[in-house]
C-alpha cells in the first residue's frame, strides 16, 4: 500500500469499519449545524458565558430524567430541556420586569438549578452518573439520540432562517425593532429556546460541559476569519464540523476520550485563528504593517 493510500485509510477507516464511529460523526455534523449559529449570536449579543450557564442549568432536569427512567437519553433530554427552559424563561422575565441585568439573573437561576441537580444526584445516584451527564459519550450515541440530534439541528436551521432578520436587528438596534413593532421580546425568547435545544442535543453526544465548547469555540474562531453575520455563521459551522471529524479521528487512533478530543480540536483552531486569522488577529496587524494612502 502506498503512503497516500495509508493516509486515506487512516482518515476514513474508523468510519467504514465501525458503525458507532459513523453515528458519532453524523451526530457531530448535525450538532455543528445548530450549535455554530447559536454560538455566533451568543458572541454577538455578549452572552458568551450564558452557554456555560445553560449547560449547568440543565443538570437537575437530566438528573430527574435519569432517576425516573434510568440511563434513557430521551428522558434525560426532556428533563434537561425543561430545566434549561425554566432557567432561561425565569431569567428573561426577571430581566424584563426588575432592575437585575440579564447576566446576573442568569447567574442566580443557574446556581439554584445546579445545586438542585447536584443534590438530586448525590441523594439518589452515584458520581459516575453525574460524570455521564456532565461529560457524555459520543461513542454511545444510538439511533434514537441520533434522530433527536438531527431533529434539533433541522429545527435550528429552519428557525434561524425565519427569525434571522429580526434577530439581527434585535442585536444591532433593539430600539429600532421596538419602534417598528418587531416583537423583540419574542425573538429573544425563541433564541433562548434554540440555545437550550442545542445544549440538550450537545449533551446527548458530548455531555453538557463539552457541548458548550462546540458551541462557543467555533464562533469565537470565526470572528478572526469572517466579516458579516452570515459568513460568521458559515465559518462557525465549518469549524465545528472539522473539529468533530478531526476530534473523532484523533480519539480513535490515539485512544483519547472523544468529547474532550473534539473540543480541544476546536480550541486549537480557535488559538490558530486568533494568532494567524486574517481579520483583527494578533498577527494580522503585524503582517500588514504598511498603512494605506487614504
Amino acid at each position: 500500500m502506498t503512503l497516500l493510500g495509508q493516509g486515506i485509510a487512516w482518515l476514513v477507516e474508523p468510519f467504514t469499519a465501525f458503525s458507532f464511529m459513523r453515528r458519532a460523526l453524523v451526530a457531530c455534523l448535525a450538532l455543528a449545524l445548530g450549535a455554530g449559529p447559536v454560538g455566533v449570536f451568543l458572541v454577538l449579543r455578549r452572552m458568551s458565558l450564558i452557554g456555560d450557564t445553560m449547560a449547568h442549568a440543565v443538570l437537575p432536569g437530566a438528573a430527574i430524567g435519569f432517576l425516573v427512567a434510568g440511563l434513557s437519553l430521551p428522558a434525560m433530554s426532556l428533563g434537561g430541556f425543561i430545566a434549561g427552559l425554566a432557567v432561561a424563561l425565569l431569567s428573561g422575565l426577571v430581566t424584563r420586569f426588575t432592575a437585575l441585568k440579564e447576566d446576573a439573573s442568569f447567574a442566580a437561576f443557574f446556581m439554584i438549578s445546579l445545586a438542585l441537580g447536584v443534590m438530586i444526584v448525590s441523594l439518589h445516584g452515584s458520581n459516575v452518573d453525574l460524570m455521564h451527564v456532565l461529560f457524555g459519550s459520543i461513542l454511545a450515541v444510538d439511533d434514537d439520540s441520533l434522530i433527536l440530534v438531527a431533529v434539533i439541528a433541522t429545527l435550528s436551521v429552519m428557525t434561524f432562517a425565519i427569525i434571522y432578520r429580526p434577530l439581527v436587528v434585535e442585536c444591532f438596534d433593539p430600539g429600532f425593532l421596538r419602534a417598528v413593532g418587531g416583537m423583540g421580546a419574542v425573538i429573544h425568547l425563541v433564541f433562548l429556546i434554540l440555545v437550550v435545544l442545542n445544549m440538550v442535543a450537545g449533551f446527548q453526544a458530548l455531555g453538557t460541559l463539552m457541548a458548550v465548547g462546540l458551541m462557543m469555540l467555533p464562533a469565537t474562531a470565526a470572528r478572526f476569519w469572517a466579516r458579516e453575520v452570515w459568513s460568521l455563521m458559515a465559518t462557525a459551522i465549518f469549524v465545528a464540523m472539522v473539529s468533530g471529524y478531526v476530534g473523532l479521528i484523533l480519539s480513535y487512533h490515539m485512544n483519547l476520550p472523544s468529547g474532550p478530543a473534539i473540543v480541544l480540536t476546536a480550541g486549537a483552531i480557535h488559538l490558530v485563528s486568533l494568532t494567524f486569522g486574517p481579520r483583527n488577529s494578533l498577527t494580522a496587524g503585524w503582517r500588514q504593517r504598511r498603512h494605506l494612502k487614504g
Partner: peptide, 9 residues
Amino acid sequence: DIVADFPIS
C-alpha cells in the same frame, strides 16, 4: 442606542 461594532453593512 445602537450597538456600533455589530458586523452589519
